[in-house]
């Protein structure tokens, strides 16, 4: 597998008020925004929520703001389809309310990811997962599992691209039936190598230190 550059919301380092805000505040604001747009599904509320996300992105700096439109590139057609469907079923106001609200939630969640180092997100997760100790599950291991899972998403997406490229290079038209086998094999191989990497670094042995 080659190096795959794209990632989920990856941190854009900075020192803006958004970057410096404590994690609990980010989560609280994110929840407040999502609950509001879910409860009040009207065009005005959605428009307000969207405008708020633009404002907050701007507050986080120019590089972060430049990433605001990013989801529309890949998911734009999905939003359009949903909006058309809602318009037809429930009218314009609800369509804007539902789809606009959804986009606002997505953007707010992205903003948290873009302005918080993953280690901080994971530490937050460790705190939240602390009660898991009661069922003899180590919160650190739990957070590491999430980190490994997040890391595997671009890797699997990348292997799909690699296999399609390989098929195309032989003049085959890539289709799901053709790709499934090799992609599963590449994914299992990736999982093996990740396991090796964790073992080689002794990362999973930490619990014995406590």
């Amino acid at each position: 597998m080659r190096g795959h550059v794209y990632q989920l919301g990856l941190l854009i380092p900075g020192a803006s008020p958004i970057h410096r805000a404590p994690l609990w505040l980010k989560y609280a604001a994110l929840s407040a925004l999502c609950i509001t747009v879910l409860v009040e599904r009207t065009a005005w509320i959605a428009a307000g929520a969207l405008a708020t996300t633009v404002l907050l992105f701007a507050l986080a700096g120019r590089r972060v703001l430049a990433l605001w439109p990013r989801p529309f590139r890949s998911l734009g057609w999905l939003f359009a389809l949903l909006a058309a469907h809602q318009w037809w079923l429930n009218g314009f106001d609800t369509a804007v309310g539902v789809v606009g609200g959804m986009v606002a939630c997505l953007q707010a969640a992205r903003l948290v990811l873009l302005t918080t180092p993953q280690s901080e997100l994971l530490d937050g997760l460790v705190r939240v997962a602390r009660p898991l100790r009661w069922v003899r599950c180590d919160p650190e291991t739990f957070a590491l599992t999430i980190a490994v899972m997040l890391r595997s998403i671009p890797a699997v997406a990348g292997s799909i691209r690699d296999v399609s490229d390989a098929a195309a290079a032989r003049g085959l038209r890539p289709n799901p039936a053709l790709l499934a086998g090799p992609v599963v094999v590449a994914t299992v191989d990736f999982a093996h190598r990740t396991g090796d990497a964790l073992a080689a670094r002794g990362v999973m042995d930490q619990s014995e230190f406590r």
């Binding site: 190096g3 980190a147 190598r193 990497a197 670094r201």
Partner: peptide, 26 residues
Amino acid sequence: GFLFTDPLAQLIMPIVVEDVELSLKA
């Protein structure tokens, strides 16, 4: 310490300093 051929197979965390920190957790 074991160094692989492909560093991407080895780096777990997305940010450089976070990855080094992972080795230091213990």
